[in-house]
Nucleic acid binder design. Structure first.
Lengths: 195, 195
DNA sequence: CGCGACGTTGATTTGCCTCAACGATTGTGG
DNA sequence: CCACAATCGTTGAGGCAAATCAACGTCGCG
């Protein structure tokens, strides 16, 4: 039970049998149908969430009604509106499943207890957040220094597994371009490659 | 001694007298002249760094030789090439002082000891990194959904203290526009405001 | 079968860049 | 203490990458 979650944690910090037990009890499973919302803007985000199966997106809607994908989450990833979770303020992001999905989640109060019961959990989330932070820094630098075509190439080579599961217009949104423009990029790349 | 550092940590986690002692001994002071490099691309980054006084920038140089400012650091901020530090790989970023500065730094080995001696330090860096991650997420969303003018307005209202200390072309770089374009934005904003 | 979701194409517009030139200010060596 | 060179900000002309808008093709599904 919750095997992938335990593996995910053990990949970074050691756990005793007893701690594994505690962790497994603390996380609850939630199943989502396709296109079901896990969090809406304005909601309180009271859980840390681990994607066990399927694929979800974290996105926001700007003043003009435009959707912007901040992050995808596939199995083995953690997803949340972290700011809303940490500060207990209403969410600014939406979280929605793209395919049928299973999420394991732990309530904030339970997590705060767990930080004291299992100190390695502090360390685990420090490491996870550091890794996430670093990945986001890289994305930031790329968005400043590379063209959309370069970023798309990089995306498909790094996230081949994600690319299969999700529609192209969501990748466009994640990359910060319009679906039309991504289509043009793909056309250009394919004609270049068969030369 | 290292008063601002201790204050910075105590703002997030409790510390005993003894722990304060340990932390103060673990951090070493380093003074920098204006435009002095603290880290160069290719160096190993072996320290976590806290800005005690002054102002620095973290930046990268792309293939075309263009500089991109990833982050500023003023007193009370932590700065690093976190990826290089965590993975012990050569740095991809440069860290350079903009003004005369004082930095407090702790070596990785000493920090790893400290994580075990003072478990609250794990928690402290978890919280700090979570906050940094959240701030970077917000910047990401803004870069996708707002115009350069909106981002500049937001920057000066949030970082008024930084804006004073650093040249305009570095703010332009941070915002992802050319100095010329930022100049045009400022002109437009000033004519609009005196209407 | 028909409809909605998704991808593509092309015409036009726009936000920002590039390049080149020109003040203004600062600081530095003779 | 002045002269000159850097450094920094501004201005304007021309160009390009990507957005917008509108139309159309295709596929899967109720």
């Amino acid at each position: 039970m919750h095997e992938s979650l335990i593996q995910n944690i053990k990949a970074h910090v050691p756990l005793t049998e007893n701690e594994v037990e505690l962790i497994q009890e603390a996380f609850k499973e939630r199943k989502l149908k396709k296109k079901e919302h896990l969090l809406q803007k304005g909601d309180n985000s009271n859980h840390m969430r681990f994607v066990s199966e399927g694929c979800l997106k974290v996105y926001s809607i700007d003043e003009d009604g435009q959707e912007h994908v901040l992050q995808f989450g596939i199995s083995g990833w953690w997803i949340n509106d972290l700011y809303a979770f940490l500060t207990q303020t209403p969410a600014t992001f939406f979280i929605q499943s793209i395919t049928e999905s299973t999420v394991l989640q732990i309530h904030r109060d339970r997590l705060n207890q767990l930080y004291d019961e299992v100190p390695m959990i502090d360390r685990f989330f420090r490491i996870k957040t550091q890794n996430g932070y670093v990945a986001l820094q890289e994305r930031t630098i790329r968005s400043m220094s590379e063209t959309a075509e370069q970023r798309y190439s990089q995306f498909i080579s790094r996230y081949r597994d994600i690319e299969q599961q999700i529609p192209q217009y969501l990748i466009a949104s994640y990359l910060g371009v319009t679906p039309e423009h991504l289509s043009a990029i793909r056309k250009k790349m394919s004609t270049n490659n068969l030369s």
